[in-house]
Structures are given as C-alpha cells and as structure tokens.
Design a protein around this nucleic acid. Structure first.
Length: 539
DNA sequence: ATAGGGTTAG
C-alpha cells in the first residue's frame, strides 16, 4: 500500500510527476475515479484526503489525471485554512527542511487572497526552525533567508509573537549572526521568555564567547534545567571541565533536577578530569532516576567516564549491564580497552560487535586501528582499514589514513608508511604527517624525517613542535650542527612555540628557546618540591 | 510548536 507522503503533495504542487514514474512498473488499470472526488464542494476534507491517497497509490496514474488531482487539491478545502499547509511544512522539518523552505513561497502564492489564515505564527515558527537546521550546502546564504522571513513576519505583524521571536533568535544565532539574534532579544522584551534566554546563551557558547554566555546565564531570571544544561555543555565544549563540575554543583544547590543532557555533559567533564568520585556519585544519582537508569546514552557516557577515570572493570560492568548496545556504546568500550592496553580485547570486541550486526562508524575504526597500532598488529590493521570500503562502503577519511600511518610508523615501517601517504586520495593533514614524523624519529631515519618536515613546511603545517621533533631526531644521532641550525631557525621565526602558564594568579608566557625565565622556573620547582615533601609527611 | 546530548588518532 502506498501512503500519501508530504513529498507526493510537493510533487503535485510543483507539478513534477516523478513519484508516478517510480510506481508505474505494475500495469494495473486505473479504476474509474469516484465522481464525488472531483466535487470538492460535496466531499468533506477527510474523505477527499483519503481518496487522494488512494488515487496516488495507483501504479499507473497518467499525467492528465495528475493534473486533475492537482486542480482538485488547489480548489479543495485542503488549502482553505492553515491546518493542511502548516502540517505539511511541519512534517518536512525533520526530513528535508530545505524542501519546506522551497515549498513555502509556492504555498503562499496558491493560498494568498483566498486564505487569510496562512501564513500564521505557526508557519513562521516552522520555517525558522527549518532555516536554523539548514546546513550550508543546501543554502548559500541562510542569513538572507532568515532576514527575509523576518521582514515578512514584521509585515504580517507576527514578529512579536513569542514563538516567532524565539525562532528568529534561534535562526539568526544558527547562521552565526549573533548581533541580529541579540537585537531581536533586546527589542522584543514583552515576549521574552526562558527559551529566548537559552537560545541566546547556546549561541554565545557555540561561538566560544564563554564570558558573554556566563554573563547572560547569571542575568537569567529563572534558570530551567535546560539553561543549566546549556551552560554545562558550553563549558564542556570549551574544555573548561572544572567550571562545568562547578556549575553542576551550583545546579544541585539551586535544587534544579539535572536532566539527561546535564548528566551527559558532567559525565564527560568527570572523564576529562579523572574525577572518579564525582562520577560515581552521578552514577548513583542516575541509577535511582527511573528513565535515565535504562538510557543507552547515559550508560555509554558512564562507560566512557569510568574508562577515562581508570576504572576499566566498572566500565565493563556498566557495558555488560546494558540492555542494548549501539555503535556508540561499543566504540566507547573499544576505546576504553585500547587506552588501558587491552588491545587484543578491544579488537575482539570489535569483531563481536560486527557479529551482533552493529555497523561500526568512522570513530569506531579510528579506535580499533589505534588498538592495532598499540598491539603492533600491522596485518590486522591493514585488513580492518580495507574492510571499511569492502565491507561497509565507507571511504576512509584523512583520520583513518593518519591511524594507518601511525600503525606502520609504530612498527618501524617508515617506507610503507610513506607509501600510504603517497597513495592518499586527499592532502595529508598535520596528524598524518605528524605520525609519519614520529615514525622517523622512532627509527632515527634522518633522511625521511627531513623529507617529512619539508612536506609539512610546504603545507604550512610546520609549527614549532615539528621543529622540536626534528631537532630531537638529529640529537638522537649526535648531529649537533643540525640541531643548532634547527634551533636557530626557530629563534629567527616570528612566532616561536610558546605556552602560557598561570602561576600564583599571574599568567606568564614561555617561549621556546627563551631562557630568561629559567631562574624563576627553578625557584618554583623548589617550592613545589618542598610542598610535596610536607604533604608526604602528613600521610 | 520554540531552547539542551554520547564515541576520536598524535
């Protein structure tokens, strides 16, 4: 049975009978269309819709009949109010937002004058959601699109409707136009609510403007669990894990019940910090929280957290206790096993995953290739790398080439690693060449090392770390003149390697080759040593 | 009807 899909309606409205062709293999004769179907004044909308469905399910509808259906659609009551066009747009949101946006002007042309109820606030809400979810390849300039919708909303006086205003904030923010998002937020004070605040908050956190995000968060009148979660994911996304745990504790103090998103963010932070106790505490919280106790994503985050905090056995237990394991769960477990040096087990689990019919994704391959590299299993790595395209139809990405180069490099097979890089269908990135350079350093192969460093220079990937590695390579071979020349080259550069360290609340900058702070470093080191001695004495 | 999410090589 062929069910009437939104795409069929679109085909009708756009007059492109493509879907008919796809079903015309059967040679059934079209039964006579019930007369009442062609009489929209008589047929109630529900019956007309059902009849339309039936008609479209016919395998051999002719183009002429399609035109009749189209005419029927245009004159029927289906387009007389906002329900049908809105639900049509709504149904397209998760599947193809760009089609919803393309369909809108057509719907508007058809319904204008005759239909004062379309578009309404719902329509704008849907269209703005569609614009927000639009990826760049589908639309060259979503910003202009959002501005046009904004203009139309102003003309039709829907711009101060709460959902429309929030949709505008969200859509402007999604296409990176933060100042417009902010302006809508500032102007539409009367319809400002928690969603407006949260939309803007996530927009700042996506733009890595953590201070703005925090200021907004602090100024928020009523923080919902979603707002707390947004602030948490902002910190986790920025790598500020300690702040994330801090915010989470603030959330608990404010007696706001953490939801799934909040728990997932904090678990990630705990994993990064190695904060096992905090993580355990979260596990207990989650275990008693009904729906979350059975949630696969939460369980995966727990597996990851325990593995990163060094509790491989607990990670295993959580993994074993899961009712269903998806790619993410398997990948987290494989990555954990590999990190703990249980490479064979990681590779075995990869095999079991495939036996269970779970399809590995790009990340799974990176993890399992890394396990092969640590175990020194070159053949197995090549096999797995090859299976990406042969068994799964996935083209290896630059990351997978990087992993394979790393496997070969660790095994001391510099020539083979070079061959892989030469055969790559894309430009090698800094990971690929970095792995190659590592391999050269590992074998003490100066000639190859020089070549790789030159390649990196050509691609603009020769940050100071590369120079350091190269100089280490020379030093390992006792080539001191070369070491000196590389080091001198680094000092002559405009931007040498430098790091910032915060000590006693003062940020100090350390540059590669700069020895002026050496005395100060020794002093700090001595202080640190004394502190450690005192602490050891207490135990 | 609008806001929030997990796995990554060196």
């Amino acid at each position: 049975m062929y069910v009437l899909q939104p795409t069929h309606i679109i085909s009708l409205l756009q007059f492109r009978p493509t879907f008919i062709r796809s079903t015309s293999t059967e040679s059934a004769v079209v039964a006579t269309t019930p007369l009442w179907f062609w009489m929209p004044m008589v047929a109630p909308p529900a019956i007309a819709t059902a009849a339309l469905q039936q008609l479209l399910s016919r395998p051999s509808l002719t183009a002429a009949q399609l035109r009749q259906v189209h005419a029927q659609l245009l004159t029927s009551s289906l387009l007389a109010d906002h329900f049908f066009p809105n639900s049509l747009l709504r149904s397209l949101l998760p599947a193809s937002p760009h089609r919803a946006l393309r369909l809108f002007p057509r719907l508007r042309r058809i319904t204008t004058n005759a239909n004062p109820l379309f578009p309404n606030a719902y329509t704008f809400s849907f269209l703005l959601t569609a614009s927000a979810s639009l990826a760049p390849p589908h639309h060259a300039s979503p910003r202009i699109l959002v501005s046009s919708l904004h203009a139309l909303a102003i003309l039709l006086a829907f711009d101060t409707h709460a959902y429309v205003s929030n949709g505008l904030i969200h859509a402007y923010a999604s296409c990176g136009h933060l100042c417009s998002a902010r302006r809508v937020f500032d102007i539409n004070v009367s319809c400002r609510d928690v969603c407006s605040w949260t939309s803007l908050l996530t927009a700042y956190s996506r733009a890595a403007r953590l201070d703005d995000a925090r200021a907004l968060f602090d100024a928020m009148p009523d923080k919902t669990t979603i707002a707390w979660g947004a602030m948490l994911s902002a910190y986790v996304g920025a790598g500020s894990f300690a702040e994330a745990v801090d915010v989470f504790q603030g959330m608990l103090r404010a007696r706001v019940r953490p939801n799934r998103a909040a728990v997932l963010s904090v678990l990630a932070a705990c994993g990064a910090l190695g904060a096992l106790e905090q993580g355990r505490w979260l596990h207990v919280l989650v275990a008693g929280a009904g729906a979350m106790a059975k949630d696969g994503m939460v369980a995966t985050a727990l597996v990851d957290m325990y593995a990163k905090c060094g509790s491989l056995e607990t990670a295993r237990q959580v993994f074993a206790g899961m009712a269903e394991r998806d790619v993410f769960a398997y990948t987290a477990m494989i990555s954990g096993l590999s990190d703990h040096g249980r490479c064979m087990e990681a590779i075995e689990l990869f095999g079991r995953m495939q036996e269970q019919g779970v399809r590995p994704n790009e990340v799974t391959f990176i993890c399992v290739l890394s396990a092969c590299g640590r175990a020194g299993l070159v053949g197995r790595a090549r096999e797995i790398f090859g299976s990406m395209s042969t068994a799964y139809g996935m083209e290896p990405g630059v990351e997978h080439y990087g992993s394979l180069v790393d496997v070969l490099g660790r095994a001391g097979m510099v020539e083979e690693a070079l061959d892989v890089v030469r055969g790559m269908p894309m430009r090698p990135d800094s990971y690929v060449l970095g792995a190659l350079l590592n391999a050269c350093v590992g074998c003490g192969d100066m000639e190859a090392g020089k070549k790789v460093a030159a390649m990196m220079a050509e691609l603009g990937l020769d940050h100071s770390g590369v120079q350091v590695q190269l100089s280490n390579l020379y030093a390992g071979r006792g080539k001191w003149e070369e070491v000196v020349s590389v080091r001198r080259g680094m000092e002559e550069r405009k931007v040498p390697g430098c790091s910032m360290l915060e000590v006693d609340g003062v940020a100090r900058e350390f540059m590669a080759g700069d020895r002026s702070q050496e005395a100060w470093i020794m002093e700090v080191a001595e202080q640190l040593d004394a502190q450690l001695r005192i602490m050891a004495g207490h135990h």
